[in-house]
């Protein structure tokens, strides 16, 4: 029971970190960035290559993954999304899907479809023993990373100038421009942060579930996206809460109801929540104007 709860929180923390990327990008650019899941996969591969081929220490590998993914996020935004700033949301959605296909197939060409086994980078760190239960170091670090990221992001958006600019742009682009905020740079920054977080999530995900394929990011991507909606898309604490709840529900569903139907259970809970509270758990209700 407790072991399941901890596993659930650990998986949920990964979802939460990915969901933060979705939620920030959605909040500011009002777009569903379907390529986000594939950035996770790229992050996983970069870390894998740095460790397995270049023999770098894990900390450096994580840093490399974050740097590469941040750059990737900025490049994707510049090339594919920026020209569509004024297009319909569906056009942007399809472009995001195109980017997602591109990343998956590029990864397929570079790293082939063979499954890579991700090394346990936290192997020599001590775990935690509670009574007769062992908590793996990766679980501790995932939960810890999640808390640190959450606090840092809340402080960043609440206290710093760039963070305030971000919130302003997400509320009203036109008014933000009039206030002298560089909207394009702010959106780029959001993509950079989201993609950097995706890299961290990728490393944590691959350490906990050590198989790496070009399609590794797809399912966690979709789940994290549901987590973001679950918690109320656009809200940072919402993404956090949604992610952790989703992880816990998934693990409990697997343990007590049915292993095969766990995805169906997760999505059913999402649907029920949305029907009761159509804007997600912590989402703000926007009144419609006539």
């Amino acid at each position: 029971m407790l072991a399941n709860l901890i596993n659930g929180i650990s998986l949920g923390s990964v979802y939460a970190i990915i969901a933060l990327g979705y939620t920030m990008v959605y909040g500011i650019a009002k777009m569903l960035n379907f390529a986000h899941g594939d950035v996770i996969m790229v992050g996983g591969y970069i870390a894998f290559c740095s460790i397995a081929y270049l023999g770098w220490p894990p900390a450096l590998a994580v840093l490399a993954a974050v740097v590469v993914c941040t750059m990737l996020g900025i490049v994707i935004e510049r090339l594919a999304y920026k020209p569509l700033r004024n297009a319909t949301s569906l056009a942007v959605l399809i472009t995001a899907i195109g980017v997602s296909y591109f990343l998956q197939n590029a990864a397929l060409l570079i790293w082939t479809s063979n499954t890579k086994v991700f090394p346990n980078i936290f192997a020599n760190l001590p775990g935690l023993t509670l009574g007769d239960m062992q908590i793996a170091p990766v679980t501790l670090i995932t939960v810890l990373a999640n808390i640190v990221i959450m606090v840092a992001l809340t402080l960043f958006t609440g206290k710093t100038k760039m963070g305030k600019a971000m919130r302003a742009v997400s509320e009203d682009k036109g008014a933000a421009t009039l206030m002298g905020i560089n909207v394009n740079r702010t959106i780029s920054l959001t993509f950079a942060i989201g993609s950097g977080l995706a890299a961290i999530a990728g490393v944590l995900l691959c350490t906990a579930y050590p198989t790496l394929m070009p399609t590794t990011g797809a399912m966690p991507g979709i789940k994290a996206f549901t987590a973001a909606v679950f918690g109320g898309i656009g809200s940072i604490p919402g993404a956090m809460l949604g992610g952790i709840l989703l992880g816990v529900i998934e693990i409990f569903g697997k343990a007590y109801i049915s292993t095969q139907l766990s995805d169906a259970i997760v999505f059913s809970v999402l649907i029920i929540v949305l029907l009761v509270k159509p804007t997600g758990l912590l989402g703000r209700k926007v009144n419609e104007k006539v």
Binding site: Y26, L32, I222, F225, T226, V229, I233, D263, A264, F267, S268, L270, I271, L274, P278, T279, G280
Partner: peptide, 14 residues
């Protein structure tokens, strides 16, 4: 809007 889209996605997965 997007909430409807995500629920259809969820139903598809279910």
């Amino acid at each position: 809007g997007d909430y409807l889209a995500i629920v259809t996605l969820a139903f598809g997965e279910i």
